[in-house]
Amino acid sequence: MSEHFIQRRSPDFWRASLALSIGAFVTFANLYSTQALLPLFAREFGISPASASLSLSVSTAALALALLITPMLSDHAGRKSVMLTSLILTALSGFAIAASQHYLWLLLFRAVQGFSLAGLAAIAMTYVGEEFAANCRGLAMGLYVSGTAIGGMMGRIVTGTLTELFSWSAALLILAIISSLCTLIFAIALPPSRHFDRRSASLAEMRQGFSFHLQRPDQLGRFMHGFLLMGGLVTLYNYLGFRLHQSPYLMSDGQIGWLFSIYLTGIFSSIWLGSKADKYGARNILLICLALMLSGTLLSLATSLSLIILAMALYTFGFFGAHSVVSSWCGQQAQSFKAQASALYLLFYYVGSSVLGASGGYIWSQWQWPGVVTMVLILVSCSILITWNSKQ
């Protein structure tokens, strides 16, 4: 019955959306907390830009690996319990990262944290698909994605600003404390699942679910969007910091951290374009998002700082709209094995972040910003081709 689903104008809609947005904030603030610090790590630890980018890539790679087992755990233990455990472990590992004195230890704890992040990152999409009424899932997913944008933005701004005021370890310690408080709010606010059917953990069923979705060309195309687009976003932002540290910009770590306030455009676009996809169709809105990303990538070749900021705003606006549309589209088209569909989308998403983000370091070292732009143009163009040939 429709009344058993979370309706758009009900108190549960806002409780659940608030909780999921807070969970997204914690997840993505921690996941991207080191991105604004990459130039600092390169200087402080005497490593290359590609090696510094590993502080982000090991987390996204570990998260991608954990996504292979998270759906099975959530099918057995329940959606809310897995998401809550994920947030608790994320906060605890944050304290360990802040206490790390050597780069190898930092990488190790970042990998542990990345593994723990998978619980909420994978299951939030499944929770939305199971618990929200069909006519508000696009909006609910848009609100969740806006939480990812806020988290990604604030994680970078907090660490960049506090590092300039104190130190990188103090900045990450404060983030761990904030994460602990947000986890408590999540535990209280999120309504329990009403449409979750507990199943015993089964490796065979997990493989069956993954195989089911990977054999569907349109669904595989949506997974590829995650790989291509997230890889492009991380590559641009990873090496923008190195570019702006150089002459003629000579920006500080704190100033570079504040550049991530551009993510505010993504907070708006994820909600607005997510709801538009409910009305005008996912394919049509996705093509608009990709056109914006392509334009932003080309404009970033400008040397004027104001035009570079505008370019990143265009790309970010388009990216978060695309992410909201594709993630909701992926869940809606998953008639069976819904948790596995969400996990596969995010698996591709974070493998793209890890592999392409780290690969961009070699592109940057060889060809600087024009090389990075060329790489991202190819990624976005591939996504446009996939969308053009997909079904509505």
Rank of each mutant, 00 (worst) to 15 (best):
L273D: 00
M141Y: 03
V351M: 14
L356R: 13
S327K: 01
F260A: 11
W367R: 06
L264H: 05
A149R: 08
D75G: 10
Q368I: 05
A96I: 08
E3F: 01
L117C: 15
A176N: 14
L20N: 05
L346H: 02
V234L: 11
D218I: 04
A99E: 08
T235E: 05
L106C: 05
E130M: 12
C182R: 01
L286F: 06
G361N: 11
S247T: 11
A64C: 10
N30H: 14
N135Y: 07
L298D: 08
S270Q: 00
M1F: 08
V380T: 14
Q35R: 08
L63E: 00
G46M: 12
L264F: 12
Q392S: 15
L287K: 04
V372K: 03
Y144N: 09
V380F: 14
L63C: 03
S200E: 13
V373W: 09
L68H: 10
R216K: 15
S57H: 03
I267W: 00
H225I: 09
S247Y: 07
H195T: 03
F317N: 02
Y280R: 10
R198M: 07
E164K: 12
M251I: 10
V58S: 08
S93K: 04
T60W: 03
L89W: 14
S74Q: 07
L307E: 13
V26I: 09
T126A: 10
A19V: 12
L67W: 03
L143Q: 09
A171K: 15
F115V: 06
M154Q: 02
L165W: 15
R199A: 06
I6R: 00
Q255M: 15
L344Q: 13
G361I: 04
I178H: 10
M141P: 01
G321E: 03
V26Y: 00
F109I: 06
W258T: 08
I97H: 10
F337I: 07
F242E: 06
R243N: 05
F320I: 02
V325H: 05
W329R: 00
L203A: 15
A341F: 00
M375K: 02
A24H: 03
M206G: 14
R15S: 13
I123L: 11
